[in-house]
Amino acid sequence: MENIADNFPFVASALLLAVAFYIVIFRKNLIKLIMGIAMMASGVNLFIVALGYRTGGNAPIYTDVPPGPMVLSVPQALTLTSIVINVAVLALMLTMVIHTYRNTGDIDSEKSRKLKG
């Protein structure tokens, strides 16, 4: 049980991922689905950043840094890459939803006849 209290950021990212999976599985609105995918990305980013944290660590930037250990830097850099990719993919997905709305007249993936099945 104390393990849960210690690892709370990891558990929080897992719960965020679970909520995002709920949204992706059960919501039929395409916009909400994209929100779920964005939440999933946030959960993964939170997990990666939390992996590299050291207790009492500073951000790994040497400009006027107070004394102390430094947080691992490679997870942060890869999270930065991941955020940029998420923005790009999100823009592309939203454009596809606009396209779907113009073509089928609905953004509900069950009601729209062409997307059913």
């Binding site: 690892n7 709370f8 558990v11 897992a14 719960l15 599985i25 992996l51 590299g52 691992l72």
Partner: peptide, 22 residues
């Protein structure tokens, strides 16, 4: 399935190293 997945995720997170000491 979602509950199984959530339990799987949370139990996996408990096996990671303690937070703050990689």
């Amino acid at each position: 399935l979602l509950l199984v997945l959530a339990a799987f995720l949370v139990s996996g997170m408990l096996l990671v190293h303690p937070f703050g000491a990689p």
